[in-house]
């Protein structure tokens, strides 16, 4: 059974724009991206929208639906009343390019700032070994589809453009955590996470976790563990005392920070 869906869609670019009203015929079982595609096909051929897989796995169609950061392809029309007007805008934390398309290059710049995996030398037989339980630990973080909805909703950059140079954002704290929990990695990124990536800016209000379409517990499993690891290194008086009297810091556990003088 089809019905007429009322939509408000933001149209414009950096020189200006506004919410425009549309009515489009939709069917039960469709998602918001279907409605936008039909709109594009039948009424508004120049509507810009970024999309790719339509299966919630490519992370392209991130936008804001009724003010909430969501994937257009994973938001079912059946979640809304048929008489309701659905408002769709581009992500509001990033510069808009046109209509629903934003410039997310901020995230790629942050990705480049993050030192990549630096494994230990191979074993004598030329292999590297990890136990299954250690492999599983990072799997949750590997589910990230880089939709950047967590970056979009994070108030540290969403509400404060001036914080962008100093703050990597939840998606990259996820990566910092994944690497720091990796038993074969040798790069101690704890100080880097706190200083260059701005982990201390996060006030753990958990919006990143709320919007993650993959259900990754970003705050509980990545950001807070990274904060605790920074505390191990930086705010733990026993560790500080141990380093001052020359007791080896066992917390380093195979990691070295190239920025450390010793």
């Amino acid at each position: 059974m089809g019905y007429d869906l009322k939509m408000r869609i933001w149209r414009g670019d950096q020189s200006g724009g506004d919410l425009q009203d549309y009515t489009v015929e939709v069917s039960e079982g469709e998602v918001v991206l279907d409605a936008i595609h039909r709109l594009q096909a039948t009424q508004s051929g120049d509507l810009a929208v970024r999309w790719n897989c339509k299966a919630g796995k490519c992370g392209s169609c991130s936008a804001e639906i009724n003010g909430r950061p969501r994937l257009l392809c994973m938001t079912r029309l059946s979640d809304f009343d048929q008489t309701e007007t659905i408002t769709v805008t581009p992500m509001r934390a990033f510069p808009v390019i046109r209509d629903l398309v934003t410039d997310v290059s901020f995230n790629y710049e942050k990705a480049r700032e993050l030192p990549s995996f630096q494994p230990q030398p191979r074993d004598a037989d030329g292999k590297r070994r990890m136990m299954q339980v250690d492999v599983e630990r990072g799997q949750e973080f590997r589910k990230c589809i880089e939709c950047f909805l967590c970056q979009d909703t994070c108030h540290v950059v969403r509400d404060h453009e001036d914080n962008k140079p100093a703050f990597a954002g939840p998606r990259f704290f996820l990566r910092y955590a994944e690497l720091d929990m990796h038993p074969l990695d040798t790069h101690d990124r704890r100080a880097l996470a706190q200083d260059a990536a701005g982990l201390g800016m996060c006030n753990i209000t958990k919006c990143c976790t709320e919007v993650c379409p993959e259900g990754i517990r970003i705050t509980d499993n990545a950001i807070i563990p990274m904060k605790e690891r920074v505390v191990d290194r930086k705010f733990d008086p026993l560790v500080w005392l141990g380093s001052k009297i020359g007791v080896r810091n066992r917390d380093n556990d195979g990691r070295t920070d190239p920025r450390d003088p010793d």
Partner: peptide, 19 residues
């Protein structure tokens, strides 16, 4: 600044959430 910044989509409301 913020969501009303010069490069962001021009939307006056601080939020469009209706819940």
């Amino acid at each position: 600044t913020g969501v009303r910044g010069a490069t962001r989509a021009e939307i006056e409301a601080r939020t469009l959430r209706e819940d």
